[in-house]
Design a protein around this nucleic acid. Structure first.
Length: 856
RNA sequence: GCCGGGAUGGCGGAAUCGGUAGACGCAGCGGAUUCAAAAUCCGCCGCUGGUAACAGUGUGGGGGUUCGAGUCCCCCUCCCGGCACCA
């Protein structure tokens, strides 16, 4: 055995051996129980960052633990390879996104392999390869024919200078990231998945996911946002014809308090009114500036303008003015809202600003309405109707029922369940994505590409320039014939949202080589995924889309289960400071934390010593260049230290501000472990302790050993809290280092403890563990250690003594002592007597096995 | 703005079901070893007062429930994530 711990040597040897013997190949035909352990696949941005290391180490610990427990484990890996950063890199470096992406994949695969993850690389896939996306196109055509996918207009960010659609990320303070031009909203046709058809099932299905974190289920439920309300109409007459303005409200009980209605700038009524009113046309134009992001819409100043039009109140017939509001979203609900300033905060602010009437119609006992105190009760459903004619005195539910019934009788409304969730628009005016398999024919319309003509292959030699979708300029791609009539036709050049690819990759891993269809029978052998691991930032969008897609595939007969992921672990983000400099035209250049020094005088760039601006702590991301590269860590200390430190730094669900202070300690621990094993092995072979009498010190160590096995198993399997598992093994090793004695029986306990400790660390630090176990037990396979209940038995325990809840001492009592005996021993103790001062205690609380609290 | 989460020593964190606050590790300090340094080993280490024993105090801030609160309830501050075209 080597005296020194040489990580690079043992890690290379172990990895070479794993590759040679295909150790981590998942068997499709095994009769052992399956464990499908999946980590969210990475976007191939160039290099791994610490967030990846954290994610994939968590997955690897769980995969390796279950393998040691006898499961047939599948842990695959692939690449979420389409996306915007490749186009940005193309623009910056004049390389095709395909070449850039493939080079990144090669580099990152090497990095992942150097970390020693137990991945079945034979199942590797990349979403940008035609043999993957052809099946996505195939499903698209099926769903299009079924009507689950349809086409409608939708609003996007438009850069009028670059003549291109911008992602929300590319809109910075209302301006295009490259041109600096004011961004406008523009309506274009897009394809949509009818996810709202599945809203109820996506919501109720959350109840069948006990293995998901509550916070994720709450976020998804709120996102879907089921609300029961009333859809109702305000009749009006315009240009000689009768029409109705529809709105949706969850507060129909306040209908009598409506003092105006507000419509979106894009609403037909607004467009019509603007024809006669130039200042309104100008205002509508102003509303079209800015991004479509909801956060921007919600934080901007609320503005409006009177259209001059009036609609009739559906119950009273009173004339109600119609306003255009920049905060009303055309894409949500009816594109119009009724406004009740007395009982809605936003309406109240709007009414105050434009001096619109405020009419309170909800009363609360012992409260009279005043503008000062309105916040306390404006939204309360606990009040009753006032100033509401025949509805006076009714509570929330009774009022809604009565008003809905009256509206229904007038055919001006009905109760309706509405979802906040909107249909999923998937058209992207981008090159580097999966082509939408549609052909536009003048005679036949939008024709889905027949299965035998799939895939529609994306040309890989294109270099985008930031001005529109370059596919539009590729005649060889665009020009085609109509599959139905054979006439010359145009191919759709929009590509799909990359969330589509990431919504079904987990299923394709079961059968990545199948070329006869999207999935084969192996999918149902492996699905659902037993453990899914990924960042909390995916709590809503990705995880909701994947759940939706699973149901789509189920309804196509491709999978048998209802939900894709049984257990979900949402890893906290690895966050780091961001640093930037601003050019005179307001553009930001971001600097990596590794290139910046921070001291009392502020932050400066290492390269030129000049100051940089501190941009705040954010998740590691390519766009802000704050990802910390783990390679230096691996080069310096080895993969095991990087893995150990990442798992030791914080529990997995907690966000972690990156700092490598402390990594030395993780490395020191591995060196100490190696030294302990080395010194023991030098003493000659000895069998692990198998029974018999032990000296007290060895007995105490064995007790600690088996307590540790119990704790570590629980920490990994149930709690998924690896930092405390590692701490427990560290404590055990500290105790083992202090255990003296070279006699056979003590050495046998030491053998037992070392074997178990090395096995318990194996999921976390697999290379050193395999090397050490091979020295401790040559030729024997490492298995997870089992708890010897007999070793845990104790005769006496220590109880804490409290007086009035304050700690005042301890007593030792027999484990079997009765409550009365414990109470008597506590009262008799010196520590308690001192505080009792001769008086009788008011109360004595005994918590068995823990403490005695005496109240005086 | 809305939804979800978080805040504990100089630092990362522990305390699993309301019961010893600070496990484990980092940094720091003292010592051993060494010609010296690195490495290693031993010890100390929340704050205040005290030579000490010990006492008081302490889990972002304010209030409450309880024999007992880091943990439960109410209010507030700040930080992180998401907000539908970053992935």
């Amino acid at each position: 055995m080597q005296e020194k711990y040489l990580p690079s040597e043992i890690e290379h040897a172990a990895q070479a051996q794993w590759t040679a013997s295909q150790t981590y190949r998942a068997r499709d035909d095994s009769d052992r129980p399956k464990y499908y352990c999946l980590s969210m696949f990475p976007y191939p941005s160039g290099r791994l960052h610490m967030g990846h290391v954290r994610n994939y180490t968590i997955g690897d610990v769980l995969a390796r633990y279950h393998a040691m427990r006898g499961f047939n484990v599948m842990q695959p890996m692939g690449w979420d390879a389409f996306g915007l950063p490749a186009e940005n890199a193309a623009i910056a470096n004049n390389v095709p996104p395909a070449a850039w992406t493939y080079a990144n994949i090669d580099h990152m695969r090497t990095q992942l392999q150097a970390l020693g993850f137990a991945i079945d690389w034979s199942r590797e896939l990349a979403t940008c390869k035609p043999d993957y996306y052809r099946w996505e196109q195939w499903l698209f055509t099926r769903l299009f024919e079924k009507g689950v996918i349809y086409k409608k207009m939708a609003t996007v960010n438009w850069d009028p200078v670059d003549q291109t659609v911008l992602a929300n990320e590319q809109v910075i303070e209302g301006r295009g990231w490259r041109s600096g031009a004011l961004v406008e909203k523009r309506d274009i046709p897009m394809y949509f998945f009818r996810i709202t058809q599945y809203a109820d099932e996506l919501l109720s299905g959350l109840d069948n996911l006990p293995g998901w974190p509550e916070r994720v289920k709450t976020m998804q439920a709120n996102w879907i946002g089921k609300s029961v309300g009333v859809r109702l109409a305000f009749p009006y007459e315009l240009d000689g014809s009768q029409d109705r303005l529809w709105v949706f409200t969850t507060r129909a009980d306040t209908l009598m308090g409506v003092t105006f209605v507000a419509v979106a700038a894009e609403h037909p009524l607004a467009t019509r009114a603007a024809q006669d009113k130039p200042e309104l046309a100008a205002f509508i134009n102003e509303c079209k500036q800015g991004s479509v992001a909801e956060a921007d819409m919600a934080t901007m100043e609320k503005k409006g303008m009177d259209t001059g039009l009036k609609v009739a109140h559906p119950l009273t017939g009173e004339a109600i003015p119609v306003w255009v509001g920049n905060y009303v979203l055309m894409s949500y609900g009816e594109g119009a809202v009724m406004a009740v300033p007395a009982h809605d905060e936003r309406d109240f602010g709007f009414a105050q600003k434009y001096a619109l009437p405020i009419k309170p119609v909800i009363g609360v006992e012992r409260e009279t309405f005043s503008l000062d105190g309105w916040e306390e009760w404006y939204a309360s459903k606990a009040g009753y109707c006032v100033n509401s004619g025949k509805y006076d005195g009714l509570g929330y539910e009774a009022a809604v029922d009565a008003i809905a019934a009256d509206l229904a009788a007038l055919k001006l409304g009905e109760k309706k369940t509405q979802f906040r969730l909107r249909d999923w628009g998937i058209s992207r005016q981008r090159y580097w994505g999966c082509p939408i398999p549609i052909v536009h024919c003048d005679a036949c319309g939008d024709v889905p590409v027949p299965a035998e003509q799939l895939p529609v292959v994306l040309p890989e030699d294109v270099v985008p320039d930031g001005a529109g979708n370059p596919l539009n300029r590729r005649a060889d791609f665009v020009n085609c014939t109509c599959p139905t009539c054979g006439a010359p036709a145009r191919r759709e050049t929009d590509t799909m949202d990359t969330f589509v690819e990431s919504s079904w990759y987990y299923a394709r891993y079961a059968c990545p080589d199948f070329d006869g269809g999207m999935l084969d029978a192996r999918a149902n052998k492996w699905l659902p995924v037993d453990q899914y691991i990924g960042g909390i930032e995916h709590a809503i969008l990705h995880l909701l889309y994947a759940r939706f897609f699973h149901k789509l595939m189920r309804d196509e007969g491709l999978v048998a289960s209802d939900e894709p992921f049984v257990n979900l672990l949402t890893q906290g983000m690895v966050i780091a400071n961001t640093y930037y400099r601003e050019t005179p035209d307001g553009k930001k250049t971001w600097f990596n934390p590794a290139d910046v020094v921070v001291d009392d005088s502020g932050a400066r760039l290492k390269a030129d010593g000049q100051p940089v601006i501190v941009g705040g702590i954010e998740k590691m991301a390519k766009s802000k260049n704050n990802g910390v590269d783990p390679q230096a860590l691996i080069d310096l200390y080895g993969a095991d230290t990087a893995r150990l430190f990442t798992m030791f730094a914080a529990p997995p669900e907690q966000s972690l501000e990156w700092s490598d202070a402390g990594v030395e300690g993780a490395h020191r621990f591995l060196k100490r472990l190696w030294k302990l094993a080395y010194e023991h092995v030098q003493g000659g072979a000895v069998a692990a302790f198998a029974g018999g009498e032990l000296p007290d010190a060895a007995k105490a160590l064995r007790r600690q050993l088996h307590q540790t096995i119990h704790k570590v198993s629980d920490d990994i399997e149930r709690r998924k809290q690896f930092n405390t598992a590692i701490a427990a093994v560290m404590e055990l090793m500290n105790a083992l280092a202090k255990l003296d004695g070279a006699d056979a029986v003590t050495r046998s306990v030491r053998q037992e403890a070392l074997e178990a400790a090395v096995a318990m660390l194996a999921p976390i630090v697999p290379h050193i563990s395999e090397a050490l176990f091979a020295e401790l037990r040559p030729g024997v396979a490492m298995v997870w250690p089992t708890v010897d209940e007999g070793a845990l038995v104790q005769d006496e325990i220590e109880l804490m003594l409290q007086v009035n809840g304050k700690l005042r001492g301890q007593i030792r009592v027999a484990v079997a002592a009765t409550r009365e005996a414990v109470e008597a021993a506590a009262l008799a103790s010196e520590a308690v007597q001192k505080y009792l001062d001769g008086q009788a205690p008011k109360k004595v609380v005994v918590v068995p096995g823990r403490l005695v609290n005496i109240v005086v």
